[in-house]
C-alpha cells in the first residue's frame, strides 16, 4: 500500500471517528485532566485561582466532614451492595427455578427502576414522614414508637436511603442474575435432583458456583452505581440531617455548587475518581484469582 492511499484511508477513517471523538474528548477525557489541574489551585468562584499545589488534598484529609462523607459513602455502598445483591440473587433463583408467570413477576420487580427517581423518592419521603407517614403509623399501630421520623435523624436517614436504593435497584440486578442463570445447563439440576440432592444442595453445588462470574459483575455494577448515588440523596435528605447522608458525591456537589469552592471540590473529585478506579481494579483482581469461569 503506497503512502497516498494510506493517507486517504486514515483521512476517511478519521472522518467517521471525528464526531464521537470530539465529544468524548471535550466533555469526558479533557475534563479529567482539567479536574486534576484545578485540584492544585485554591479557587472560589469569581475569584482568581491561586496555585497551592497539593495542599488542598492535605486540607481535605484534615477536614472532619470529608472523612465523615467517606465513612458514610462506604457504609452506604456496603449495605446497598450486600443487601441488593443477596435480595436480587434470591429473587432471581426462586423465579427461575419453578414458578409460573415469570415474565409478569420480572416486569413488576423491575418497575421501580424505570420510574423517575425523584417521583419515587417523593412517595418514600411521604412514607418516611414522622407520625403521619405510613411507616411510623404502622409502627404505632403495632404498639411501637410511632414518631421515628425516618429522615429526621442522621442514622435512620442513612438507613432510609439504603432501603430506598435497594428498593428501586434490586430489579435491575435481578435481571442480570436471570441472564446469568440461562447459562446454567438445566441437565445439571435434573441430574442432581435424580440423585436426590435437595434444593439447597443444588444451589450450593451447582447454581452458586456457575453464577460466580455473574455475581462478580453484579457486585461491580452495584458498587459503581452505589458510589455514584446522588438523585435520591438530593430528593430525600439533601445530605442531612447534620450531614448524616452527605456521601462523597453529595460532598463534591455541595462544595462546588453551594459553596463554589471549585478547587477543593476538584480535589475531592480526583479522590472520588481514584477510589472508583481502585475498587473496580481490586474486584477484577480478586475475580481472576478466586473464580473459575465455568465453560
Amino acid at each position: 500500500m503506497n503512502s497516498k492511499t494510506s493517507l486517504r484511508k486514515n483521512f476517511s477513517s478519521g472522518l467517521y471517528l471525528l464526531p464521537a471523538l470530539i465529544i468524548l474528548l471535550t466533555f469526558w477525557l479533557v475534563p479529567l485532566g482539567l479536574v486534576a489541574g484545578f485540584s492544585l489551585f485554591h479557587w472560589e468562584y469569581g475569584t482568581h485561582p491561586q496555585w497551592v499545589g497539593v495542599s488542598q488534598y492535605g486540607q481535605l484529609f484534615h477536614q472532619q466532614l470529608f472523612w465523615q462523607s467517606l465513612r458514610i459513602t462506604l457504609i452506604f455502598v456496603l449495605a446497598v451492595v450486600v443487601g441488593g445483591t443477596l435480595l436480587s440473587l434470591a429473587v432471581a433463583v426462586f423465579l427461575y427455578r419453578g414458578i409460573r408467570a415469570v415474565g409478569l413477576f420480572r416486569a413488576l420487580y423491575f418497575l421501580p427502576y424505570v420510574m423517575p427517581v425523584v417521583a419515587t423518592s417523593t412517595v418514600w419521603l411521604w412514607m418516611f414522614q414522622s407520625r403521619v407517614g405510613i411507616l411510623d403509623r404502622i409502627i404505632a399501630a403495632l404498639g411501637g414508637n410511632g414518631a421515628l421520623g425516618w429522615v429526621a435523624e442522621p442514622n435512620l436517614a442513612l438507613l432510609s436511603l439504603i432501603i430506598f436504593t435497594i428498593w428501586f435497584s434490586f430489579g435491575f440486578t435481578m435481571l442480570l442474575f436471570m441472564a446469568g442463570l440461562t447459562n446454567v445447563p438445566p441437565e445439571l439440576w435434573e441430574a442432581a435432583s435424580v440423585d436426590g440432592a435437595s434444593a439447597w444442595q443444588q444451589f450450593v453445588k451447582i447454581t452458586w458456583p456457575l453464577l460466580t462470574p455473574t455475581t462478580l459483575f453484579v457486585v461491580v455494577v452495584n458498587t459503581i452505581n452505589a458510589f455514584q448515588a446522588f438523585t435520591q440523596i438530593y430528593a430525600l435528605t439533601r445530605g442531612g440531617p447534620l450531614n448524616g447522608t452527605t456521601t462523597l458525591t453529595y460532598y463534591i456537589y455541595e462544595t462546588a455548587f453551594t459553596y463554589f469552592h471549585f478547587g477543593s471540590a476538584s480535589a475531592a473529585a480526583v479522590i472520588f475518581f481514584i477510589l472508583i478506579l481502585l475498587l473496580t481494579g481490586i474486584q477484577f483482581v480478586v475475580s481472576k484469582r478466586f473464580i473459575q469461569y465455568g465453560g
Binding site: 471523538l21 469526558w28 479529567l32 479536574v35 484545578f38 446522588f230 463534591i252 471549585f262 473529585a269 473496580t280
Partner: peptide, 19 residues
C-alpha cells in the same frame, strides 16, 4: 481511548464540564 471514557465517573468531572 473511547473505551477509557467508560471508566470516567461523571461526578468526578462536573466542575470542568460546568465551566
Amino acid at each position: 481511548v473511547i473505551l477509557a471514557t467508560m471508566m470516567v465517573p461523571f461526578y468526578s468531572i462536573i466542575v470542568p464540564d460546568y465551566l
